[in-house]
Simulated scan of single mutants.
Amino acid sequence: MKNDEPLEYEDVGAALREGRALRPARSYRILVAQGDLSFRPVDVADPVPLGRQILASAGLDPRGGFSLFAILASGDFEDLRLDEPFDLRARGAERFVAFQTDRDFKLTLDDDQLAWGKPAISGAALYTLAKVGKDQAVFLEVRGGEDRLISPQDMIDLTAPGIERFITGPMPARTFEIIVNARPRVVNDKRVSFEQVVQLAFPGSHEPNAVFSMTYRHAASKPHAGELGAGGSIEVKEKGTIFNVTKTVQS
């Protein structure tokens, strides 16, 4: 016998990923974030909820001055008014973000204009919106200058005059600036070896009876300071790990 009982809940995101229609259910599961892109699952009773119903289901007071946006499959933000119905069955969106503000800040990401409800946006949020691969990066476009690489830890001010423009592109080769015997040196790997630092301190070939000793501080790996011997290696910080290398020629 066919079971016509509705599901306890229907996962809107799963239906989108599987390319199928929503099934009858007692509730419909969407993802809602407040003020950032930290989404949590929320169940709404109607497959065509009003904006205020989405806020209420997320535990947010619709009278609290919230702006609500649907994040479409294209990554675009669509403003959703509180008394506007949003058809989960047809619109291709499972993610919604609410901002408690009365002003939207504009930005562009690869020429797509987005509205953001906070005066700043994190690099992590930009990477999530851009959906870049591991070899791709997000840059703040600087007209007439060098585009600024954005890291996930950055916070970007959106209150400056004009619209901030962000673009994606290949991740630049990562470099690390270390100090060897008081001189800055650049290496291309986070982990450096004793032998590598010796060559930076004393380039070229060495006498067979040359002995090197080395101390370091401000390292990324633990311990952050100490002595490094032949065959050893440590992880350095992006900038500022210091090495002191001495050379002794034994008789």
Rank of each mutant, 00 (worst) to 15 (best):
R103H: 14
F243W: 02
S221M: 04
A182K: 10
F96C: 06
G231S: 04
I179M: 14
F202T: 00
D43Y: 05
D135Q: 11
F212N: 00
G204P: 00
A173T: 11
L126K: 05
P172D: 03
L228G: 00
R17M: 13
V138K: 05
A93M: 13
P170A: 11
D79K: 09
A182D: 12
K239T: 07
N188F: 14
E227D: 10
A182N: 12
D87S: 05
R40M: 09
D154E: 06
S221E: 02
V186D: 09
G144Y: 07
T175R: 10
S233F: 07
D110G: 07
R148T: 07
I234P: 00
G204I: 02
V187T: 11
P184R: 07
K247A: 00
K237A: 12
Y127K: 07
R26E: 11
Y9F: 12
V192E: 02
I178Y: 01
G123I: 08
A210N: 08
S213W: 01
L68S: 08
A73T: 08
Q136C: 02
E84H: 10
S67Q: 13
L82H: 14
Q53S: 15
K2D: 14
R81P: 05
F202Q: 02
G35E: 11
R26P: 01
I167H: 10
D104R: 14
R103G: 11
G117S: 11
R191L: 05
L80E: 03
K190S: 12
F69N: 07
E235V: 01
E207K: 06
L50K: 09
G226R: 02
K2M: 14
A33E: 07
L31E: 15
T215R: 09
L55Y: 02
G144D: 10
A130P: 01
E195Y: 01
E177T: 15
D43T: 04
T215V: 10
H218R: 15
Y127R: 08
F77V: 02
Q34Y: 02
G19F: 12
S251R: 10
K106N: 11
M1I: 14
A90W: 11
I242W: 03
F69V: 13
V142Q: 15
Q100F: 09
G204C: 03
N181S: 04
E146S: 13
D4E: 15
I178F: 04
S57D: 12
F243K: 00
L50N: 06
G19S: 14
D43I: 07
V42N: 00
L68P: 05
S122F: 07
I121D: 04
P208R: 04
D135G: 08
L109Y: 06
L88Y: 11
F105A: 04
V236T: 00
E207P: 05
V142F: 09
A137I: 03
D43L: 13
P6N: 06
P41M: 06
A125S: 15
E78G: 03
I178S: 03
D46I: 01
